[in-house]
């Protein structure tokens, strides 16, 4: 698999660049997921975020997820870029593009990929709230913020 398909970047991300990696003559659908920095979480205001990664392992793990996707949806092509460093509100944190001959596989593979990223890719998000900082981390977003707040 082309290693350029799975990348970390300290520079701002551009959706079209990721789409361009998966376009080919036999695809009839491309889905993109764009993860952006949210300002309000459960009533708390985020000022900025910092993403840190264990970079070589993170790239390897993204490529592994790509292999999983190709096994489950054999006709798809996938590219993932994740941002690192300091991000402001509405900045793009991650882009996933999946191309496929037909749309269903492209939708499904894209959603699967984001779930797997949250489960297993060694990337961490630090929240800079109005009233302090906090490393977030409990894999599933639904529980992570609540758990962190209890501790």
């Amino acid at each position: 698999m082309n290693s350029n398909l799975f990348k970390l970047s300290r520079e701002p991300l551009h959706v079209q660049e990721v789409i361009d990696k998966v376009v080919h003559r036999n695809c009839g659908a491309i889905t993109t997921f764009v993860g952006t920095v949210r300002e309000m979480t459960a009533g708390k205001k985020t000022l900025q975020l910092e993403y840190q990664a264990y970079e070589p392992m993170a790239v390897k793990t993204l490529a592994k997820i790509g292999e999983e996707v190709q096994t489950k949806w054999p006709d798809t092509t996938i590219a993932i870029t994740h941002r690192l460093g300091t991000l402001g509100i509405s900045d793009i944190a991650v882009i996933i593009a999946v191309s496929s001959p037909h749309r269903k596989a492209a939708y499904e593979a894209n959603e699967y990929t984001m779930e797997r990223i949250k489960e297993m890719v060694p990337i961490w998000k630090k929240e800079f709230w109005e009233d302090g900082t906090q490393w977030i981390g409990d894999q599933l977003e639904e529980t992570s913020y609540e758990e962190e707040e209890r501790s």
Binding site: G35, Y51, A53, Y54, M57, A58, H82, A93, V94, M114, I117, K118, E119, M120, V121, P122, I123, W124, K125, W135, I136, G137, D138, Q139, E141, S144
Partner: peptide, 10 residues
Amino acid sequence: VAFIPPVSGG
């Protein structure tokens, strides 16, 4: 060795 606390990418 790398210690990998619960991840929070995406």
